[in-house]
């Protein structure tokens, strides 16, 4: 069995057992046999899967580009904070990304879509922009705090050995900071995934919105909700694994 299959075997089996127990309950509680068979017919229906997978695609696109944006903005702000350059840009931008975190992400998303972009820009792009900016303040804080935790003496030792400041950060500071920031960074990336679910408020069909769309078709939410939850679970687990692998591989001493 492959490594991935081995790793997800236990949670997958647990999920299937849970699903079967729920379905059994559904069958027992059904007024007649026809009702209980509706769960399986929805679960196995092509229409449901089309809608759900469409929502999944939107969620993955929003998440992927929002996290890239978030990492780029926070890396830039961290660089400016450490080097003390371009303070005319850093200070207002830093204030902006830390202040918008006090606004609920749903409200922020609607503010961007209906007010700032006046409903004229594609909703997926607006969600990406808003979600990315929303988490960039927190990620900048994570980067800065963990970089500052690494003793200044080590940078001086690196410079005394002839390394440039850039080399000191690349080979001495960042490997240590990256290891320290894994737990908090993982949490922020998972928050980013959750924020994508608010895209439905601005008429985008993400995974959660797709569940409601299936409900509108079949008047039943159980099957699509279970499937959507499974997809979120898989994505969250992948995030945990991905952040760890990327940060350790990126700064591994070769």
């Amino acid at each position: 069995m492959s490594y991935i299959a081995k790793r997800y075997r236990r949670p997958s089996i647990l999920f299937l057992v849970l699903l079967m127990m729920l379905c059994s309950c559904e069958y027992c509680m059904a007024a007649d046999a026809a009702e209980s068979s509706s769960f399986w017919s929805i679960l196995l229906s092509r229409d449901m899967w089309c809608v759900i997978l469409g929502g999944l695609k939107t969620t993955v696109i929003i998440f992927f580009f929002a996290i890239i944006e978030s990492l780029l903005v926070s890396s830039l702000l961290t660089y400016l904070a450490i080097t003390n350059k371009c303070q005319w840009f850093y200070k207002p931008m830093h204030w902006f990304v830390t202040t918008i975190r006090d606004i609920p992400s749903v409200a922020l998303m609607m503010l961007f879509y209906y007010v700032i972009f006046a409903g004229k820009v594609n909703g997926i792009i607006v969600t990406i922009i808003a979600a990315g900016l929303y988490t960039s303040g927190a990620i900048e804080g994570i980067f800065t705090r963990n970089i500052n935790k690494v003793g200044k003496g080590q940078i001086e030792a690196g410079r005394a050995l002839g390394m440039t400041t850039r080399q000191c950060y690349r080979y001495i500071v960042l490997p240590q900071a990256a290891k320290m920031m894994i737990p908090t960074l993982t949490d922020q990336v998972k928050i980013q995934l959750r924020i994508t679910s608010y895209a439905g408020y601005i008429a985008q069909t993400d995974l959660i919105r797709a569940v409601f769309d299936v409900q509108n078709i079949y008047s039943d939410m159980l099957a699509p909700l279970l499937v959507a939850s499974l997809f979120y679970l898989i994505m969250a687990k992948s995030i945990i694994r991905g952040v760890r692998v990327i940060t350790t591989k990126l700064f591994k001493y070769d």
């Binding site: 003496g153 001086e156 030792a157 690196g158 005394a160 002839g162 390394m163 001495i172 290891k179 001493y253």
Partner: peptide
């Protein structure tokens, strides 16, 4: 330069401390 607090790189082994630069 050698520092009073040594300033060795704690995440690297002794060998890697010497080979980095």
């Amino acid at each position: 330069m050698i520092f009073q607090q040594f300033n060795l790189f704690p995440f690297l082994t002794v060998l890697h401390n010497l080979t980095l630069a």
